[in-house]
Amino acid sequence: MILWLIVALVGLYLMAPVLVVIATSFTATAYPVFPPQGFTWRWFGEVLASPEYLAAMRFSTALAAASTAIATVLGTLAALGLVRGRFRGQTAISALFLSPIFFPAIVLGLALLIFFNWVGLAGTFPGMVAAHAVLTTPFVIRMVSASLAEFDPAVEEAAKNLGASAMRTFFLVTLPLIRPGVVAGAVFAFIISFDELVVSLFLAGPGMQTLPIRIFTSLEYSSRPSVSAVSTLLILVWLVVGVPLYRRFLDVRHT
């Protein structure tokens, strides 16, 4: 009973900001207030009719898709090497590959800006894709490594013994068996890229507005409930895509 109370309180504490945002997106006032006054769908209509928001959503989607594709391929290959390989400095390299998770985003953003200025990628779309891939690859490595750890290496040996080439073994045996990890890694990469603000702020060129940048700048200049509405839309997408995935791969009760 007491345990349930604690769980409920912690849950409320964690969820309260989200609930506040959702509530304010329905307020009839011209600025976000909590508790909301009245009820209206107006702000959702405004978001979906706004060329700026729609362009930002498209841009973020393209950026997330491109960087996810790169992160998924690189992360899967890196995980294979790190889990399967036997070489010197394995632990150090593994830590290095996962380090973008732990670096402060602002440090990474600054470092990438300086480096991209040098190589001429700053303010370009490929530059942003590359930066986002750096941020998201570690998540793919983690997910795929977890899948690989549960995998009986004898299965790959069996494939080779039956005459399969390395390519055939990978595509017909290894990949199907680690697919849950690869899919989870890709979805996480997509969500993290879509959500990313700090590094994007450093690297975005003129006219390149991701959705988080758009929300951020909207808040700077005006304070309309449409910002809450777009946030609510993001939460909705997360509920539809992220929660099933979370239950499948990250639920603490399964580990």
């Binding site: 009986d152 004898a154 299965v155 040996e157 069996a158 494939a159 045996v173 068996l177």
Partner: peptide, 8 residues
């Protein structure tokens, strides 16, 4: 193989 190593 000891673990049979069938393709699951």
């Amino acid at each position: 193989f000891q673990s049979y190593a069938l393709f699951p």
